[in-house]
Design a protein around this nucleic acid. Structure first.
Lengths: 220, 220
DNA sequence: CGGCCTATCTATCGAGCGATCACTTCCACG
DNA sequence: CGTGGAAGTGATCGCTCGATAGATAGGCCG
């Protein structure tokens, strides 16, 4: 049959081409890791390898751009508002937050880039997770305490174990993504239902442990 | 001062040298990933790079050996016995099991090799985790059900959400290792206490969700 | 002490990869 | 219509890395 037709050389505007390369680089490095080579990336983009260097001065710069693409705009400021909205029951807010959070975080790109950047020794991960801890965990703990009639964090500071309990819920959700996108395992079809179950079990199981920690801290 | 004295060339028996290389390779590839190069590995071992090839036919063979070293003997058959021992309260057994499991699993080598092998697309991870699921999760679920007066798995099969709840506990523990050895975050000093808190919250929070799932399954 | 086996080393090959440069092709604009 | 500048390419450099081959030297045995 006919030879596989070579797509005619296409001229794009600089902006357009740069965006295409950036998007392609995200997909490519997510899949193969940052050890992936630029020739292969160029092939997938249907361009030649030197063209990459017209838009990015080095492979490292391209990788930085990948981080930007993936990390930026991942954070949704409404999460904090959602958790703060005391017109709704705490349980409902927390379950909904984790459903939303899972939606943002359980993606091939995010999970893999996050792991790759961690293994590479980037501090992006710790910076991001510090944000999560300060903005989310503290709120979850505050609202759970309030819901169960425990003292507010400004009366009794948050104990280490309380953070650990919230870390655990976070981990449970993130690990669903690891199972799927890193280990290649099957995961349940209805992730939302699972998240609801996890959050429910969390809210049922955590208060007793929290109360104990607070009592201990109070008597110190 | 004196030049750093080059240690005299040392002749070891083949067995001894092979073990040294294998051990060094584990430490090296754990740290830098499997993209690490053989010259650097040789330097750390205090030998020349070609010597590696006298003991391993290729880098790939060396990597296979690393997997063997790390995966073999990681599984402790007493875990199953421990979970089965009904002379002790279920709660106690489960807490102790997870303490033991954490001890085996929360190591720099294990955590990192596990992630690296997952990202490389090995199926070692899924094979290992299938083992965990079949040998551990089923037992934990069985004992929790028994403790809370729920039907045994041979009466009502284990629901997906029940596995998910145990996955969550597993994830909570494993993620402590990820935080420490991959993200480089600080973790609590007394991991045992945290594990106990997690297991307690699990045992307090899970039964209600499990009971609901079983009821639903029964009425289907 | 001398000879031999083999553990170890020095030197090097060849492929792959990041990066560069000069050349070609397209298209907007006068 | 044709030209200048920017988009895109082919060729290639220099380095790194896995792997090989031949030279060297440590130490056990007679």
């Amino acid at each position: 049959m006919a030879a596989p037709k070579t797509p005619p050389r296409k001229r794009l505007s600089a902006d357009e081409r740069e965006r295409l390369i950036a998007r392609g680089a995200v997909a490519f490095f997510c899949e193969v890791g940052f050890g992936g080579n630029t020739r292969e990336l160029a092939k997938r983009l249907g361009i030649t390898q030197p063209l990459l260097y017209r838009y990015f001065p080095s492979k490292e710069a391209l990788i930085d751009r990948v981080y930007q693409e993936v990390y930026l705009n991942r954070w949704d400021p409404r999460w904090e508002e959602l958790l703060d909205d005391r017109s709704r029951p705490a349980r409902e807010r927390i379950v909904e937050f984790y459903r939303e959070y899972a939606k943002a975080v359980l993606s091939y790109e995010w999970i893999r880039i996050f792991m790759f950047s961690g293994l590479r020794g980037m501090n992006l991960n710790s910076r991001y997770l510090t944000l999560v801890r300060d903005r989310i965990y503290t709120r979850v703990i505050r609202e759970v305490r309030r819901e169960y009639g425990l003292p507010a964090p400004d009366e009794v500071p948050i104990a280490e174990i309380e953070f650990e309990l919230v870390w655990a819920l976070h981990a449970s959700i993130f690990y669903i993504g690891i199972r799927k996108w890193i280990y290649g395992l099957e995961i349940p079809e209805h992730v939302d239902a699972v998240i609801e179950g996890l959050a429910t079990a969390f809210l049922d199981g955590v208060p007793a442990v929290m109360a104990r920690a607070i009592r201990k801290q109070g008597t110190l």
